Amino acid sequence: EPLWIRPDAPSRCTWQLGRPASESPHHHTAPAKSPKILPDILKKIGDTPMVRINKIGKKFGLKCELLAKCEFFNAGGSVKDRISLRMIEDAERDGTLKPGDTIIEPTSGNTGIGLALAAAVRGYRCIIVMPEKMSSEKVDVLRALGAEIVRTPTNARFDSPESHVGVAWRLKNEIPNSHILDQYRNASNPLAHYDTTADEILQQCDGKLDMLVASVGTGGTITGIARKLKEKCPGCRIIGVDPEGSILAEPEELNQTEQTTYEVEGIGYDFIPTVLDRTVVDKWFKSNDEEAFTFARMLIAQEGLLCGGSAGSTVAVAVKAAQELQEGQRCVVILPDSVRNYMTKFLSDRWMLQKGFLKEEDLTEKKPWWWHLRVQELGLSAPLTVLPTITCGHTIEILREKGFDQAPVVDEAGVILGMVTLGNMLSSLLAGKVQPSDQVGKVIYKQFKQIRLTDTLGRLSHILEMDHFALVVHEQIQYHSTGKSSQRQMVFGVVTAIDLLNFVAAQERDQK
């Protein structure tokens, strides 16, 4: 057995438009009618409502009807409940999964919650491996369901041993009777949507819809739904939504950006999952974080739909894509998950301010006199920076000697690579993860907040409520011999709460 199987392995699926269902090699399930009293909570997966979006479509000038398939009504709160249950049931049916076995899954959280929910009911041990950027709410729900959680670096490539995929496979090879159901490759993922989600949409719309818009992560949702719609409703256009920084969209030119990270969760990847059939997507749109969270908040405030950030991405694209539809036509959007997962993220004004998705003037509360002053007023001194090749031991000596707790790590040209902190280095040394002679590049981390000289002290204040420091950066445009230009970030300084307090105190003292 291989040590790991690539999540982007070539698909062996034989589905073709027009091929009889009787030739399918898979076990198919028909939607079942729910009894009045459910035998367990797993029976509350599927049969989610279709809700008309009344205000947002009109606000953006849509002539067509805009409908939302509300997947956050599933038992675990997301569309991923469907595939989690289906993968477990299919693994039980073919004898792969037996009582007492362990389920391991690399996930952005929602599939993990679905699997942990099913594992709690069915009696399996469950280990979820997820990147650090995923919300604390997801972690809390997983723990409450009895799952064990392993976190991995957000910026690790999918084929790196440190990625959530790599760590999951390492655990599988170490733990007896453990299984990775593997949402990236498992046919049960798109089949769950082909058999149930798509049929529900067709039934709820009486077979009449002209466009379907869905955000894409593993691709199982859009693949399964689109294949069924292509068979039953061939005139329906399928629109895929991919965040900026991901590479799922086609044509490839759409993916060209210097951005590699994004805040919206559960969609987009740096590889093409095996289950994603991009041939059934008629057109791709890219979405960005700001519009995703703005539209998610709009869905909550104006439509009462308590959905997550990827739902915002989907609707932001839908109001663009559906401009081509006329009166009497219908566009369906998939709202994948609930706001429950993001209470401390985009639902929080403070978080939105820190990330730059909300401006101070958007909030009406009274601010102190210094709130709208610029960061450049602080008069920061030149920063202490270190090269990635310097040793951890030497870096600790320098920081202690100069009285700093942290320093930016830059390359020879001064471009920011990340940050090192005294606390992080000492804990890594004590844990045996690094040696004093190791290069400081081994303990770089990139989960820090950046701020510009033109940003306000109010925004800085919000950042420092949650973080010990902020890195002050400025952009530099560099022209190359080819005539092309590129933008790079340079370090201007490091600012802490002490710097802000000293500035405010000094100004008030001078005024007296």
Rank of each mutant, 00 (worst) to 15 (best):
G379Y: 12
T496K: 08
F357P: 04
L429A: 04
I416G: 10
A505G: 13
V275W: 01
E291C: 15
R459S: 07
I477W: 06
G356W: 04
H394T: 10
A431P: 12
S287R: 03
V275Y: 00
F448A: 03
G328F: 10
S481I: 11
I267T: 06
G379M: 12
A301G: 15
T257G: 10
S481H: 13
D362L: 11
F346W: 02
A470Q: 08
R374H: 13
K484T: 04
A470R: 09
G393P: 07
M352N: 00
G245D: 02
G414M: 02
D362H: 11
T364Q: 11
S485K: 04
I398Q: 11
S427T: 11
L254C: 03
T314E: 03
C307I: 07
S486V: 09
V317A: 03
V275T: 04
L299K: 03
H372A: 07
L384F: 12
R452E: 11
H480C: 13
E397K: 14
T482K: 05
Q259M: 11
K512V: 13
Y479V: 13
Q354H: 11
V241W: 00
I463P: 11
T391D: 03
M425R: 11
M490K: 11
Q476N: 13
L453E: 14
G266R: 01
A321K: 05
I416S: 14
G423E: 13
T496M: 08
L417M: 14
V415S: 13
M466C: 13
G240Y: 00
L363Q: 08
C392D: 10
G309F: 02
T456D: 15
F503Q: 04
L399I: 10
V333R: 06
K449E: 15
S428P: 14
A321H: 15
D467Q: 09
L248G: 00
F503T: 14
L464I: 15
F285C: 07
Y479M: 14
L363E: 08
P273F: 00
E291M: 12
D282I: 04
L299S: 08
I300W: 00
P388G: 14
F492R: 15
V491C: 14
L378I: 03
A413L: 15
F404Q: 05
V264A: 04
D455R: 05
R278L: 03
I416F: 08
T389F: 12
A497M: 12
T314C: 06
V491R: 06
L417Q: 13
V440D: 08
R278I: 01
G432R: 12
T261R: 09
S437P: 05
Q259S: 03
V434L: 14
K512D: 10
F357M: 01
D467H: 11
D337L: 01
T389C: 08
F448P: 08
D510H: 11
G245C: 08
P251D: 02
I498L: 15
F503P: 14
I390M: 12
I334L: 08
I334N: 04
C331H: 00
R488P: 11
P251A: 04
L426D: 05
R374N: 15
T421M: 14
N424A: 13
S338Y: 06
K320R: 05
M352V: 02
G403Y: 09
R452A: 12
I477D: 08
F295Y: 12
I396W: 08
Q259K: 12
I390N: 14
Q476D: 10
D411Q: 03
G393A: 15
F469H: 09
R340K: 08
Q487W: 10
S428G: 13
K320Y: 15
V415F: 15
E253W: 08
Q302C: 14
E465C: 12
F469E: 15
R350A: 14
V332S: 00
F271T: 00
L422R: 13
H394D: 11
S310L: 00
W369P: 08
G328C: 12
L417C: 11
V409K: 00
Q476G: 10
M490L: 13
I498Q: 03
A321S: 06
M419A: 15
K442G: 06
L335N: 06
I416D: 05
Q511F: 11
Q435E: 14
S437V: 15
V280C: 09
A292C: 09
Q489S: 13
A497G: 11
S427C: 11
I477L: 15
L426V: 12
V333H: 00
V317R: 08
T344M: 04
L373I: 13
L429F: 15
C392N: 06
I396E: 08
P243D: 06
S287A: 12
Q487K: 15
R340T: 04
R374F: 13
A506Y: 08
T421S: 11
E252N: 13
I247P: 07
A382T: 13
V443P: 10
M419G: 11
T385H: 07
Y262K: 09
S481D: 10
G245V: 02
K367Q: 12
L501K: 04
L453H: 03
I451W: 05
F404E: 03
Y269A: 05
S246H: 01
I396V: 13
T395I: 12
S427G: 15
A301L: 14
V339L: 11
M466A: 12
S481F: 15
E508L: 13
M419N: 12
I334M: 11
G240P: 00
V409M: 15
T456I: 08
H474Y: 15
Q447W: 10
R330L: 03
H462W: 12
D455Y: 10
T260C: 08
E250H: 10
E412F: 10
D467F: 14
L430Y: 13
S437F: 14
V332A: 14
G483K: 13
L276F: 07
P388M: 03
S313W: 02
E508R: 10
Q329P: 05
A506N: 10
L306S: 01
A316P: 13
R509L: 15
K512R: 14
Y342K: 01
K366T: 13
A497K: 12
K345I: 02
A506Q: 10
D270W: 00
L430G: 05
A301D: 11
S381P: 15
K433Y: 09
V319D: 01
A296R: 01
L358M: 12
L384T: 09
A407F: 13
K484F: 15
L384A: 09
N255M: 00
G423S: 09
A318C: 11
V415K: 05
L325A: 03
G418C: 09
N424V: 15
Y269T: 05
A301R: 11
P243F: 02
E377F: 09
A301Y: 15
E250D: 11
D405E: 09
S485T: 05
Q354T: 11
G309D: 01
V264I: 12
Q376Y: 04
D289P: 02
A311G: 04
T279N: 13
I396Q: 09
L464V: 15
K345Q: 06
E360N: 12
V241C: 04
V473H: 09
T391S: 15
H474G: 13
A311R: 03
V504C: 08
D362R: 14
R509Q: 14
Q354L: 14
G414V: 13
K286Q: 06
P368R: 12
Q256E: 15
T389V: 15
Q511E: 13
S437W: 11
I247R: 08
Q302G: 04
L358A: 07
L380I: 14
I239V: 05
V281E: 05
L254H: 08
L457A: 02
L254K: 03
S481T: 15
G356F: 02
H468F: 12
I463T: 15
V409G: 08
I416K: 04
R374C: 14
E258Y: 07
I267D: 06
M343L: 10
I398Y: 14
A506S: 12
R452P: 03
Q450F: 15
L347C: 03
L306D: 01
V409Y: 09
C331A: 13
I444W: 15
I444L: 11
L426Y: 12
L471H: 08
A249F: 05
I267A: 05
G393N: 05
E377D: 11
C331P: 01
D242F: 02
A470M: 05
Q507M: 15
E401D: 15
N288D: 10
I444N: 14
G458D: 12
A505H: 03
L325C: 04
L384V: 13
V315N: 07
T496A: 15
I390W: 11
L426I: 13
W351P: 05
I390D: 10
V264N: 00
D499Y: 01
E377S: 13
D282E: 12
L500A: 15
V420Q: 13
V420W: 00
T279G: 10
H372F: 14
